[in-house]
């Protein structure tokens, strides 16, 4: 179980941010070669990201590169740079179908073979940004064993739906569909960015919603949002106490060879034990909720 609460976007052409973002300690950093980079700086950003990925400071943190779509003149070179530099995860934007992921997978396999990287070591995730992508979310999520997650990208999606960002009503179906697809495939689900970085209250309200829905986390565009998000995902003292008791009961049942776990006279099954472990993992990462 890997914690992926915060995925921080970093503009690929910004040397200062690429060199320092690790200090904010997001769960994942996402070097962006797509929308955050102007057309005339695509070449420069690709090389900056290629070298930044090889910095020792990023060995301790999950690295993601958002490449340009493979249908553009930049996508394949972006992928070469990311895979050869040892990126953990490639994020494909504008994913409309499983075939988009399979095309990416074939390219990744080719590059892994060419550069001698262990086969299968490059993981994938897909951003869903259209009505078609939402409708195909299940097949996208199940398209490749390399997939670690799917993300909903709100801006393009609401444009495609002929609406605009508001109180979340406009994302109601898409959030539920993407989340269910991810869970059915056994992978992670990431919510949209919250772009009004000065509206802490609005951000926390949205985080509360997506946490209760079951999302693993969010894509973030400002480092200030990381601590707020991590704190919102941190458990309370009561939750940690209960989780410890659940895990202890499960350990005891396993030691005694019992198939049934009981705590205070109530049966506990595997999903509850797994949830308890996730609670303890979040507490270990960020302490108790403040």
């Amino acid at each position: 179980m890997r914690l992926r609460r915060s995925m921080l976007f970093l503009p690929g052409a910004n040397a200062a941010m690429l060199s320092t973002a690790f200090v904010y300690k997001p769960d994942s950093v996402m070097f962006d070669l797509e929308d955050a980079v102007s057309l005339r700086e695509k070449d420069a950003a690709r090389l900056l990201v290629f070298h930044a990925l090889q910095l020792p400071v990023y060995r301790e943190i999950e690295t993601v590169v958002r490449i340009n779509p493979l249908s553009t003149p930049f996508g394949r070179q972006d992928l070469e740079a990311a895979v050869r530099a040892g990126v953990d995860v490639v994020r494909l934007p504008k994913t409309d179908s499983a075939e988009d992921v399979l095309e990416l997978e074939r390219e990744v396999e080719r590059i892994e073979r060419a550069c001698g990287r262990p086969f299968g070591s490059t993981r994938l995730m897909a951003a869903i940004e259209s009505a078609g992508g939402v409708v195909n979310a299940v097949s996208i999520a199940r398209s490749s064993p390399r997939m670690i997650g799917i993300a909903l990208a709100g801006f393009d999606y609401v444009m495609d739906m002929q609406t605009e960002r508001g109180d979340g009503t406009e994302l109601f179906y898409a959030r539920a569909a993407v989340l269910h697809a991810a869970r059915a495939a056994g992978i992670d689900a990431f919510d949209v960015v919250y772009s009004d970085v000065n509206n802490e209250e609005g951000f926390l309200k949205e985080v509360d919603l997506i946490k209760r829905m079951g999302f693993n986390g969010k894509s973030l565009i400002n480092p200030r949002q990381i601590e707020l998000l991590h704190n919102a995902y941190a458990p309370t003292g009561e939750e940690v106490d209960y989780a410890r008791r659940v895990v202890a009961a499960a350990d005891q049942a396993e030691r005694q060879g019992l198939g049934v776990i009981a705590l205070n006279g109530k049966m506990i099954d595997a999903p509850i034990v797994n949830h308890a472990k996730r609670v303890l993992q979040r507490a270990e990462a960020s302490g108790l909720r403040k």
Binding site: A15, S19, D43, A44, L47, L48, F50, A52, L55
Partner: peptide, 17 residues
């Protein structure tokens, strides 16, 4: 005050251009 990785990337970009 760039890191070595930024120096490499910028020099390479300029040459390739």
């Amino acid at each position: 005050g760039a890191l070595d990785c930024a120096i490499r990337a910028r020099v390479q970009t300029a040459i390739l251009r």
